[in-house]
Every structure is written in structure tokens, then in C-alpha cells.
């Protein structure tokens, strides 16, 4: 069958008409995603953490990470601000916010940093092969067998958590906190860091319960906490939640919108592709341009 211009335009029109007949709702076309309702979470009480780095040590052990350069009982590493990396899925940072203790000494606030396991993870949204997925138990899980190493997740993460094994040229992986996926999938399993914490600065449980617990703690001791559960609303909610004595902005937490990151990106992206309007208009534009130019050429030929 010969496809001439007339026929092509006709077919396009038919397709457009068929698309318009479906009339799906715009929002659901962009965001059909629902966070897992029964997810686990961890509530970190920064006013309790003593900065002992046992969570780092436990994380290292349960994930079989390489021996650190400086031992875990060396607390001088806290002098620098660190980020999680391919060899440490969680780190403790120390902040001096100006608060003074009863001895008039600068009181430190220790902040545990790791993957927040977003309810609506941007990394999973950005991953083009589905290597990163939000699991029903709350973990944002990384499947190395699917990963192609594009590192879109690293760009996408609002907390800049995923790290890449740049030192490994052949089989590099994206590394980040696993939420001890295997451990918490078992009955009674706890994440390594939460289990080892000597003061239970980390409480492990159902996310919904933890939010209740956090609110309860605030109600019981309002002077002790900022009236905010960090992670309850940030980027649509995270499985890891924080409560703090100090303003979150002072202890290294980013101010983030309550809308999940994928909401914007996926809306744009899905919007572009809904009803195929974007490619269709592109082809229509190209077709129109071609038509105009061809006509001009035809006319020119005629003139010559």
C-alpha cells in the first residue's frame, strides 16, 4: 500500500479521534502510584542519640562491608561531615547548633544519615529498568541483576543517597542502605542499626505507629522536640522518620516540598506522552513544515 500524504494525514486523524474517545482522567494517567500501606519504618530520636557509631558498625557487619579505614570506636571521625558511600550505608554526623548543656558546654547533636526509603521514591521512578522498587515492607530495594549502571537514581534522589562503586570498573553497583530488606522480611527481624543501638535512638516498627509514637513523644515532652516529624510529609513521606530537639535546618536536613519528587517528573513525562499528543504534534509540526517547504520548492520549480 502506498502511503501518500493524504493517506498519512487521514490515519493520524483517525488515531487522534480514537485516543480522544477513551478520555482517561489526567491525574491517574500521570500518577497511578500508591505508597505501601503497611510499610515498616524507623523513628530516629536525635535528642537521644549519643553518637557512639555502633549503628555504623552494625551496618558494616550485617551488610558485609569492607573494614573501615579508621575503627568504629574512633569518634574523631565525627569532626568531619561525612556522607554515606559505597562502603558505608549509614554515617553519623555531629552538629553543634549553639545549644549548651548543664555544664555550659556546647551540646552536640548527632544525626544519622542513610537512605530515607521514601514512600514514593524518586530513584525508583527514575530507574529505567526497574532495578529500584519500593517493597510492601517499606524498603526501597535495589536489584543488582537489573541495574545497567546509568546512575539516574543518583541524580534523582533528593537526599543524594545512592552511591556508585566507581572504583570497580567491571561490575560496579549502586550502593545504599537496604533497610536490611532480608532481615526485616523475616518475622521479628530488625534492621542492624536499630537492633544494636544502645539507647534505642532508633525505633523500628510500622510507619503509621511510629508517627503516632512521635506525636505522643512530642505531646509528653513538648519542650524537648521541634513540632515536626521530619519524613512524615517530606517528599510525600519517608519510611525513616526523625524527631529532633534542634531545628532540622540546623542539623543538616534539607527543606523539601511535601509533594513526592516523582509527582512533578512523572506528571511532566506522562503528560508528554498521554494520548501520544506530544509525538503526534511533533510529527504534525514536522509534517506541516515539510508540506510548506515542499510547496515552496514545488512552486520554485514551477517558476524556474
Amino acid at each position: 500500500m502506498e502511503l501518500n500524504r493524504r493517506r498519512f494525514l487521514g490515519l493520524t486523524g483517525a488515531a487522534l479521534g480514537a485516543g480522544a474517545l477513551g478520555k482517561p482522567s489526567r491525574a491517574s494517567a500521570a500518577r497511578a502510584y500508591q505508597p505501601p500501606p503497611d510499610a515498616y519504618g524507623c523513628l530516629v530520636d536525635l535528642s537521644v542519640c549519643v553518637g557512639c557509631r555502633k549503628c555504623e558498625q552494625a551496618c558494616n557487619q550485617v551488610n558485609h562491608l569492607p573494614e573501615p579505614e579508621r575503627p568504629f570506636d574512633d569518634l574523631t571521625v565525627l569532626d568531619d561531615k561525612r556522607r554515606p558511600g559505597p562502603e558505608a550505608f549509614t554515617v553519623i554526623n555531629r552538629y553543634y547548633t549553639g545549644r549548651r548543656d548543664e555544664r555550659n558546654q556546647m551540646a552536640p547533636t548527632f544525626v544519622k544519615v542513610q537512605c530515607m526509603h521514601c514512600q514514593d521514591p524518586a530513584c525508583a521512578s527514575a530507574c529505567i529498568v526497574g532495578a529500584l522498587t519500593k517493597k510492601p515492607n517499606g524498603a526501597v530495594h535495589y536489584d543488582v541483576s537489573k541495574c545497567i549502571g546509568c546512575r539516574y537514581c543518583m541524580v534523582a534522589c533528593p537526599f543524594q543517597i545512592p552511591a556508585y562503586e566507581y572504583h570497580d570498573p567491571l561490575t560496579p553497583r549502586v550502593r545504599k542502605c537496604t533497610f536490611c530488606f532480608e532481615r526485616i522480611s523475616q518475622a521479628g527481624g530488625k534492621p542492624g542499626c536499630a537492633q544494636v543501638c544502645p539507647v534505642e535512638a532508633i525505633t523500628f516498627g510500622k510507619r503509621s505507629e511510629l508517627i503516632k509514637l512521635a506525636k505522643q513523644k512530642m505531646a509528653d515532652d513538648p519542650g524537648r522536640y521541634q513540632p515536626q516529624v521530619y519524613g512524615e510529609k517530606e517528599v510525600g513521606g519517608t519510611s525513616w522518620l526523625y524527631i529532633s530537639r534542634e531545628p532540622f535546618a540546623k542539623v543538616g536536613f534539607l527543606k523539601l516540598p511535601s509533594q513526592p519528587m516523582p509527582h512533578l517528573t512523572e506528571t511532566i513525562q506522562h503528560g508528554i506522552f498521554s494520548y501520544m499528543w506530544a509525538p503526534l504534534s511533533l510529527f504534525a509540526l514536522l509534517g506541516g513544515a515539510m508540506a510548506v517547504f515542499n510547496r515552496k520548492r514545488d512552486q520554485g520549480e514551477d517558476r524556474s
Binding site: 530488625k190 536499630a194 537492633q195 534505642e200 525505633t203 523500628f204 516498627g205 510500622k206 505507629e209 511510629l210 503516632k212 509514637l213 505522643q216 513523644k217
Partner: peptide
């Protein structure tokens, strides 16, 4: 034992 779901907190 820690994190008893029956006794949060």
C-alpha cells in the same frame, strides 16, 4: 526485647 509492637514506646 526491643520494638515490641504490642507496646510501642
Amino acid at each position: 526485647s526491643s520494638f515490641n509492637p504490642e507496646l510501642p514506646g
